[in-house]
């Protein structure tokens, strides 16, 4: 750093103090960032699912179809509950629980695939035991967009309210997000 650059920095600090940080923050609150201004290309969409999700609407399939992207359906069965059932009842009971959940998962993904593929989306499937928040957040690094069903992880999907897990996910991920 040359003398001039150092001098400007010192004088700036002395004249402005910490006011610039406040100004920056204020501007940040109402000006879209450069990233936000750029049209973002959506090539890969993450779509987490679980037992609480009941399906997709045609409108959502239309929207996702417009991107002509790869849509990864990620069906997660709660690993902790699986472990508790295994410990409390028996390993077989745990397996029965997993198979039952995954049967539902398969039928759910079939329905979603039927809805998405005719609209131009390429559908991929994953099904595993895991954490409904952590595994999704970790996976978002490889995607351009996330679709969060509002009943994802809900204890009362019939109520139609946005679940706590969906809220946490929407607040945690740094991707364009669709909550439906």
């Amino acid at each position: 750093m040359g003398y001039y650059s150092g001098l400007i920095k010192r004088k700036f600090k002395d004249v402005v103090g910490t006011r610039y940080e406040t100004v920056q923050q204020e501007y940040h609150e109402f000006l879209p960032t450069e990233e936000e201004l750029l049209p973002r290309e959506i090539k890969k969409i993450l779509f987490p699912l679980d037992i609480s999700v009941q399906g997709v609407t045609d409108e959502l399939c239309d929207l996702l179809g417009t991107f002509e992207a790869d849509v990864s359906l990620m069906y997660i069965t709660d690993a902790k509950i699986y472990a508790i059932i295994q410990d409390a009842l028996s390993p077989q009971a745990g397996e029965d629980f997993r198979i039952k959940k995954e049967e539902y998962g398969t039928s759910l993904m079939d329905r979603i695939e039927t809805c998405l593929e005719p609209r131009g989306a390429r559908v991929h499937r994953r099904m595993f035991l895991g954490d409904k928040i952590e595994d999704v957040v970790r996976a978002t690094n490889d995607y351009d967009m996330i679709v969060i069903p509002k009943t994802y992880g809900s204890h009362d999907p019939a109520s139609g309210e946005v679940s706590a897990i969906s809220m946490v996910l929407a607040q945690s991920v740094r991707l364009p997000t669709v909550v439906y």
């Binding site: 001098l7 400007i8 920095k9 004088k11 700036f12 600090k13 004249v15 610039y20």
Partner: peptide, 22 residues
């Protein structure tokens, strides 16, 4: 560049935002 406080402020802000004026 150092003749007035306004100069220093503009140059300081621009340098922080990656714009150098020698």
């Amino acid at each position: 560049a150092i003749a007035a406080s306004a100069n220093v402020v503009v140059l300081g802000v621009s340098e922080r935002e990656g714009v150098k004026i020698t």
